[in-house]
Amino acid sequence: MKATVKINQLTYKKNLKTILADVSLDVSGDKIIGILGENGAGKTTLFRIISGVAKNYRGDVAINGKTSPADRKSLVSYSQSLGGFPENKRISQVANFHEQIYPDFDRDKYNQMIDFLSLDVTQRLAALSKGTKEKVIVALTLARKTSVYLLDEPFGGIDSMSRKKIINSIIQWKPTDSLMLISDHYVSEIASILDEIVVLKDHTVAIHKRADDVRQESGKSIEDYYESLYEEGAQK
């Protein structure tokens, strides 16, 4: 079955502040979509809403046609920070917890990724570098068998070797037929693996295009094209 995420006229406010305004987005198929935008553009909020974590929004959100937050939670694997776990827990304990709460957790696949990413599962969370933490998060997120994967800034502040390892894990272990949304505020590091880009700006979707169409039509790199959107805005 083809994975779909359909959002219609979504508006979300927090403490009277508009975070997302009239966002409509229709993505489907076995793609990797880059959700791009500055810090504070609403990327994380959008992911929290899609995955069924954030509520009290206006508008429609459907995954594979399902709208209830409970259904959506089971269809989406959303990368959560490890902040919810005590710092003295080991990677293996966090994985055991995930296996218990998610029936779709695939232990074999998880082990393959742990191997590939050269992670030592006996390490405690407190001892992990930023890059290692992100690797653990990506492995846990991809270990679930779902229709949709949401990776929230998996490359924030990590070294280039960790980044390459994570990108390769994504290409290798993203299931065929699944749809993946990756958010980032710095696009050049993931540009080569994106099918489409969605730019969030001024609380809403400013651009939604195929990545190769951007290159073909503008003759620019995704990075330059993305930056030019902000420069145009500044001139107004």
């Binding site: 076995d30 290409i171 290798q172 065929t176 080569s192 693996i193």
Partner: peptide, 17 residues
């Protein structure tokens, strides 16, 4: 296809295209 995608660090769909 997937092997090509991994070795070139690109998306599977792009290799298919």
């Amino acid at each position: 296809v997937r092997q090509l995608a991994v070795s070139l660090t690109v998306n599977v769909n792009t290799v298919q295209r």
